[in-house]
Nucleic acid binder design. Structure first.
Lengths: 102, 102
DNA sequence: GCCGTAGTACGTTAGATGTCGTAGTACGAT
DNA sequence: ATCGTACTACGACATCTAACGTACTACGGC
């Protein structure tokens, strides 16, 4: 059995470039919106997205590597969470303004 | 002589997708930073950018079409301005948080 | 063990994007 | 009218990216 761990950038290592690029995609903003809207700690499959599963994997990965979300294995599923505090600490107001925009 | 006018989106027509995509590029964020930092109403050539003039034209156009900046002819030059109020009205806090990020 | 579920890996494809150079236009100054 | 400056248009190129399908792995339940 392999230890299944997923790499997350440290709080300090989150870049504005990564975050803005990640949030510049409508599918990924939809993920972030749903996370902010109570879907926290849900599996990837629980999100309502207009793309196939493999494309969805890609988007979750981009968000994680940019430092926008956390992903932790729990059985076969993954718990996704928004890195609110880290984002607010790094770029105050950014997440809120994007979430407000719908 | 042709009337040289440049198309700008109406305030209402500015989209979060356009703005985030525009700001997701480091060269364009540099333009926005310099505009916010006193370079307002300067010609394109007055900006310190690590790209050629034709590439610079491209980036200014992307920013204008996204509704982030204004561009008006004045002689052979162009006056560039940040659409602070429009952006604040449309997506409160977004511009400030990006500018704070450096 | 076997199956189903959740997600990944990989290759492919089509389209977008950043970059450049060259050639051209519009305007002001001389 | 001629020239220089500021910017644009256009084509070329390389890279990136979003999307997909198929095949695969990891885990839980039976």
């Amino acid at each position: 059995m392999v230890v299944r761990s997923l790499e997350h950038p440290e709080r300090d290592a989150i870049t504005i470039d990564g975050v803005l690029s990640a949030l510049a995609d409508p599918v990924r903003r939809s993920i972030v919106s749903q996370l902010a809207d109570g879907h926290s700690e849900q599996a990837c499959i629980a999100f309502d997205l207009p793309v196939t599963k493999s494309t969805s994997t890609h988007h979750f990965r981009v968000l994680r590597e940019a430092g926008v979300i956390t992903q932790r294995y729990r059985g076969t599923a993954i718990h996704n969470g928004l890195r609110r505090e880290d984002l607010d600490w790094r770029f105050p107001g950014l997440l809120d303004s994007v979430l407000m925009a719908g």
